[in-house]
Design a protein around this nucleic acid. Structure first.
Length: 354
DNA sequence: CGTTTTTGACCCGCGC
DNA sequence: GCGCGGGTCAAAAACG
């Protein structure tokens, strides 16, 4: 146990260092590339005969640690991580853990993305167990269950949007009870972290709809990725809308920035209610930076990201996983330089096992 | 022949 | 209590 503890400590330190390094790198790249988005759109329009190729991205973040923590409380990894994270109290005052875990199982994360493929590739193995025509949408809804481990509770629903059939809506429910292949980390961690944020916020204040569109759209003017959190439905759910990103073929750091943007935008509204004062402080800092950004101060992009990352950093497992995920994305984009020329490339880049 | 998909039946919660 | 709709089951078919 001690040896394992030491090993995990080292991993955590390493991840935190990576995270800090990448944070700095990200800020500098954002400052450098902030004004180039329009040029690149124009360039891409020419390349693609006037059509802007929409860009998909899969968010990143929390993965194994959080999953183990949430879905199997007796896991030694989960325990030692929690004990090691002294100094940052991740517990929400007055927040019932059983309620949280029950909510996590029920929490749903929806991902809207443009895709010609019948299903977006997320690295997991799925088995179809049903199909239905839902009311109000002529497109059938398919039901899948994770088959990577026996008894894995994760399910997903796949359906095309009735209004725009190029949009594929994938809804995930539950947490995996098994380790995931690297290719599945990004999507799984997205749903898991989004669900966690959702549960943190909605359980403590189930007061209807919270919308962070303004934050996301303001945070990065070059994209209009949206994240909508709903606490008004039977079970909490979050939607990550990846369909509106009109910038195209950006350099890899843009994907990272966008991912951080989505995640960060969720932090002040959801985490802010439930987490400690430092998180609230970060939320305030972020709001101020956003105000300045709206008033046209370019430097505020960096301020905003700093505030956002500070908020994210209050969740240690999130920070560590974010670092790992960012690193993996950067590495994979370096090893696959030919990405981003169509909407499928970005997804198939990370995995193809469906 | 084992695995996956298809598809009608069934179950269950919700609103009236 | 009843009907409706969403979700799941499971037998048969299809697939590799």
């Amino acid at each position: 146990m001690n040896a394992e503890n030491e090993r995990l400590k080292e991993m955590l330190i390493q991840a935190t260092e990576n995270y800090n390094t990448i944070k700095i790198h990200l800020c500098s790249l954002m400052m450098k590339n902030g004004g180039k988005a329009k040029e690149e759109d124009e360039e891409n329009k020419k390349r693609n005969g006037g059509i802007i190729v929409p860009r998909q991205f899969i968010d990143l973040g929390l993965a194994v640690a959080a999953d183990a923590d949430e879905s199997s409380p007796s896991s030694p990894e989960g325990k030692s991580q929690r004990e090691d994270s002294s100094g940052v109290d991740n517990k929400v005052p007055g927040f019932n853990v059983d309620q949280s875990e029950a909510a996590m199982r029920k929490a749903r994360v929806s991902v809207r993305a443009r895709s010609e493929a019948p299903m977006i590739t997320d690295g997991c193995q799925w088995r179809k167990y049903g199909q239905k025509i839902a009311k109000g949408n002529p497109c059938p809804r398919a039901y899948y269950r994770c088959t990577m481990a026996t008894g894995c509770p994760v399910r997903k629903q796949v359906q095309r949007c009735a209004e725009d059939r190029t949009i594929l809506i994938t809804t995930y429910e539950g947490n995996h009870n098994h380790p995931l292949p690297p290719s599945a980390m990004s999507m799984a961690s997205t749903t898991s972290s989004a669900a966690r944020m959702l549960v943190s916020g909605s359980t403590s204040s189930p007061d209807g709809l919270m919308n962070s569109n303004l934050l996301t759209t303001t945070l990065l003017p070059c994209s209009s990725t949206m994240a909508t959190i709903s606490a008004s439905t039977q079970f909490p759910s979050v939607t990550l809308d990846l369909t509106q990103s009109s910038f195209s073929s950006p350099p890899p750091p843009y994907n990272v920035a966008n991912s951080v943007a989505v995640t960060a935008a969720l932090v002040p509204q959801v985490f802010g209610r439930a987490l400690d004062n430092q998180s609230k402080f970060s939320g305030i800092q972020m709001s101020k930076a956003l105000d300045r950004l709206q008033q046209g101060e370019q430097n505020s992009i960096a301020d905003t990201v700093n505030a956002a990352t500070a908020a994210i950093a209050t969740d240690p497992s999130f920070a560590a996983a974010l670092a790992a995920a960012i690193t993996s994305i950067i590495e994979s984009s370096q090893s696959h330089p030919n990405n981003g020329h169509n909407s499928n490339a970005y997804v198939t880049n990370s995995s193809n096992a469906m």
